[in-house]
Design a protein around this nucleic acid. Sequence first.
DNA 1: ATCTTTGGCTTGACAGTGTCAAGTTTAGAC
DNA 2: GTCTAAACTTGACACTGTCAAGCCAAAGAT
Lengths: 204, 204
Amino acid sequence: MTAVPKTAARTAESPRRALLDASLDLIEAEGLEGFSMREVARRAGVSHQAPYHHFPDREAILAAIVAEGFERLRADSLAATEGESDPACRYHALGRAYVKFALSNPAHFKLMFRSELVREDKHEDAKACAEQAFDVLVNIVDEVSLANTGERDPALIFASWSMVHGLATLMLEGKLDKHFGASMDSRLAGAASVLKVLERVVKP
Amino acid sequence: MTAVPKTAARTAESPRRALLDASLDLIEAEGLEGFSMREVARRAGVSHQAPYHHFPDREAILAAIVAEGFERLRADSLAATEGESDPACRYHALGRAYVKFALSNPAHFKLMFRSELVREDKHEDAKACAEQAFDVLVNIVDEVSLANTGERDPALIFASWSMVHGLATLMLEGKLDKHFGASMDSRLAGAASVLKVLERVVKP
DNA sequence: ATCTTTGGCTTGACAGTGTCAAGTTTAGAC
DNA sequence: GTCTAAACTTGACACTGTCAAGCCAAAGAT
């Protein structure tokens, strides 16, 4: 009732939102290979061409999903670490949160790291969200290296990212199933045991 | 001239081989998304249906490529480590070889870890080759943990794999380019610096 | 020498895809 | 009521993976 632009903005945002929701449902239900523009349209109850009114092409809708994924990853990372105060505990909590996010949103997570599907130089918002999520990691790794050695350790940032990302990826692709099983609980337990080893890397 | 079956085997193997070679060329030239059965046929100079005479479907030809990839990775790993005798050096050499393989064969490497594209439970030979490559890693990690602590450390195997795999993956997806650059040399140098940090994990 | 088999290949179709082009509906502003 | 612009539609195009059917040359058996 109050402001006209508000209503206009909502109606402009709502079909876009509906398409994104349909895409997220589809992608987690059918996997990345099952994603198609036409199936998104079908699920949103519109014609096959309607999505092109809100996104220039397939890559753009995927980029929007990627951006949202990095926002959620950032939020999860902050939520998982803000309860802890000891740097080492925060570091550990971040690693667990990263793996848990990947295992809970497998197709979404994979998409976030498929540079052929979404070229970040063409999609600034996806890139920005990715960098914001990365910043959380940077801060927590810096905390732990400052606490342990009194100095920042830039290489440790990439080392830490590589460790948790590799663990998440291998689990997602089923490469560790033979050892840890395929259920969520057993995978999380396996991840925790591997993370414990990986954390030796921060010791002086 | 000598043996009939030998010639028969060669002519039976040769078109299959030609299709695999065309696939490998295509995949490294156009990336994973650029791969298509019809383009493979075009490059091999045959009709669009000819490949189906040698592979039941698209996934089967991809599985054959995956198998070949793991064979090469295994060969590279053995070649890179057999010159070294100190376990820690062998461990380091293996990590470098893993990353170098990924960076040298980006699309091929990615395919080897795309479980939606090639389900290993449906393609025994791909699975077997993957396991043989994995065995090389297992042996070298066991060597280094035995040398350091006198005991095997199974969790260290998965930790090591996660580290190098995550590093390779992040580099391939361009996620570390901002820091290390995108050229082969600068990436390899960056990888070496990260690997040095990661190797703290094997210290007692 | 003829017949049959078989491996390698072809052409033609079908439903599915992403996307271009052009037309239609609809809702609010004036 | 008219105008405008957003939201949407229908219809095409070239492309994909794959099914179905048939062609052809060489090899083996009779």
